[in-house]
Amino acid sequence: MREEKLSVDIENIVKKWEGKKGSLIMILHDIQNLYGYVPRATSLQLSNYLEVPLARIYEVITFYHFFKLEPPGKHLIQVCMGTACYLKGASDLLHELRDILGVREGTTTKDGLFRLEVVRCLGCCGLAPVVKVDSKVYSKVTKDRVADILSEYEQEAAVK
């Protein structure tokens, strides 16, 4: 059942890009938009559809930071490490997040609630330091606000 659904999704995506040169990265973007990551099974099917060796697909996925091979957490926390944020104490925020969540960047908490990531620059340096949770941007974050920010999402999860 799951397999079938998967193949329908992929077929739609591949069709959208049919006849266009060099579309592998765009197809991977579409897949990640759909699932939040690029599942191995999908890559295998993609390899069959496109008649491209799996290694070529993985070569691309692993080269680019943007593509993920494991499912994301419920909430994605991105700590901006651009120069402006770094100068204004982003690494303190990262330490605090690591301490509270008990995970390192690039991994997801055991309960699957948060995934912690470091990003290069969110492009809002005027608001530094910046932490982004899902699509919400927290600006001029201080170390003592980190716990409050997280608790917003923890409470929301507890209510449900």
């Binding site: 579309s23 592998l24 990265i25 973007h29 070569e59 680019y64 930071h65 943007f66």
Partner: peptide, 24 residues
């Protein structure tokens, strides 16, 4: 065409490789 988080793709020959759907 979308980039995918590789700084080196700002370099023109790498950018071209990326548009062609390859490693940048």
């Amino acid at each position: 065409r979308l980039g995918a988080g590789a700084f080196v793709c700002g370099e023109e020959t790498a950018l071209i490789a990326s548009i062609e759907g390859r490693r940048g």
